[in-house]
């Protein structure tokens, strides 16, 4: 089973990369953008013996404890 984890900065935290990309996109003519946030994307392959529920528990733990810094980041994920 494969988990896809998306990590991004919390809404309340300034995102200097996202802001710069937004600004640049506007400058090159993509004027109808209201905001850009950037983040990280992880694909994690799990041992086929695990059940979906087990994978889910594992992914949440990994994302919470390792992949994100809870001070500034949040995550979402999808299991396929």
């Amino acid at each position: 089973m494969k988990a896809k984890v998306f990590v991004s900065l919390k809404k309340s935290v300034l995102d200097p990369q996202g802001k710069t990309i937004h600004h640049s996109l506007q400058n090159i003519g993509f004027g109808k953008i209201t905001e850009v946030r950037q983040g990280k994307f992880f694909e994690i392959d799990f041992d086929s013996e695990l059940t979906r529920k087990e994978v889910q528990a594992e992914v949440e733990k990994i994302a919470r404890d390792v992949l994100t810094n809870p001070v500034i980041e949040e995550f979402s994920y999808r299991i396929e």
């Binding site: 900065l9 935290v13 300034l14 995102d15 200097p16 990369q17 710069t20 810094n69 001070v71 500034i72």
Partner: peptide, 17 residues
């Protein structure tokens, strides 16, 4: 030390990237 929690706060990419 920030990641360990011995100090509060976090680091972002430099403003100038």
């Amino acid at each position: 030390l920030l990641e360990t929690g011995l100090l509060p706060g976090a680091m972002l990419r430099n403003r100038g990237l």
